[in-house]
Amino acid sequence: MPPHGVPPALSEADFRSFYDRLREQGPPGPGDRPGALRHLTPERVVAAAAGVREGRTVSLAAPVQTESAPDNAQPASHRITAPGPGEADAPGLHFARDRFAMNVHGDVDSHLDALCHVMFDGELYGGVPANTVTPDGAGALTLDLVKDGIVGRGVLLDVPRLRGVPWLEPGDQVTAADLVAAETAQHVRAGPGDLLFVRVGHRLRRRSLGAWDTARARAGLHPAAVELLAERRVAVLGSDGNNDAAPSAVAEVPFPVHVLAVNALGMHLLDYLDLDPLASECERLGRRHFLCVVAPLRLPAATGSPVNPIAVL
């Protein structure tokens, strides 16, 4: 058992009751930003920009992995397609060119989940029929909703630092009480429109001990913690893990945090980030909030995108 212990499991009935309660918040009215992004107003973007002090930028993404590993059965493919044989040394103009392909929703590369990514009981967020997603593309709630990017105040809560350990062990789960305790200890509070980043130390453990089968065991949030995010009106949730723990706290639902956040609340998720460099900078500066810029690819009918969020301190 992980050192901190595992919070109580939820029955499927309890989970569904929780899901229905969060879903009752309902989709926004016509003309509003979709889902939880409605909490991220222009005024809050301006206030976040005013918090920049040093002009220091930090990537929150991990390098794309092109090697097979226990957590990367379908590694990204990247190759140089040009110059061809002899072109590099030939006179005149030539270009280097690349080709890249990725399983966007894998278990190792940093990515953003669009609101059409999570289907539950035949529906997407807001009751949109799940069959609007076809092999030809998604018909609603696609990545195009964030084509102009997501910019706002980022907040980092470092749970391993709170517990005095380098990382949380696979299977450990972060509760709402952990998040509140981290806020108190790290002198920050997540609020309306914030982009909340929860560090569990996944990347540091992977670098230190090597890759493992994260589909079977990983640290993440306990599903009940999502209620705190709803109460605080958080706009986006991100983590250096999958956001969901494994094994799941709900035996019948493998990814309960994804269901509650994306499908019930309409909250975009950022999975498998690398928050270690940001944690170091936040520690150096003595503050855990920053301007954050998230710019996914322009893939209009997609369910997600590789992403390189940037913190501006």
Rank of each mutant, 00 (worst) to 15 (best):
G35M: 08
S68F: 12
A225F: 00
H94T: 07
A182E: 05
Y125K: 01
P70D: 06
A181E: 15
G220R: 02
G149D: 11
P8V: 01
D178S: 06
V118R: 08
G286C: 06
R284Y: 02
E183N: 00
V257M: 13
K147A: 15
A82S: 15
N242V: 02
A264V: 04
L145I: 03
G201F: 04
M102T: 11
W167V: 02
L209E: 14
D113Y: 10
S280C: 12
V118G: 10
L278C: 08
L196D: 02
C292H: 08
A215D: 12
S68E: 12
D148Y: 02
E227L: 05
L270K: 07
V294K: 02
L195E: 06
R205I: 03
A176Y: 02
I150V: 14
H289P: 01
P256N: 06
V200T: 14
M102A: 15
D274F: 00
P63I: 03
E54W: 13
T184V: 06
V133N: 15
P3H: 07
A47R: 15
G152L: 02
F255D: 15
G84M: 03
V293L: 12
Q173K: 13
G266F: 03
P27T: 05
R161D: 14
L112Q: 10
G193K: 01
R23I: 00
R189V: 05
I310S: 10
G238H: 11
L22D: 09
P2F: 00
A302H: 10
D107M: 12
A69Y: 03
G193Q: 07
A69Q: 06
V293A: 12
A190L: 00
R199K: 13
H268P: 14
P42V: 00
A295Y: 08
E54A: 13
A9F: 04
H289S: 15
F95V: 14
H187Q: 12
A69I: 02
A230D: 10
P170H: 07
P166E: 03
E169F: 09
T57D: 09
A62I: 07
R163T: 01
I310H: 10
R284P: 10
P300L: 05
D144Q: 10
T57H: 06
A140V: 02
A90Q: 12
D107P: 10
S110Q: 01
T303V: 10
R288Q: 09
Q25P: 07
T41L: 09
E43G: 11
G127W: 02
T81W: 09
A176S: 12
G210E: 07
V151I: 01
H4A: 14
G164W: 07
P135L: 07
P192R: 14
L269E: 11
L145T: 08
R153Y: 05
G149Q: 03
H78A: 15
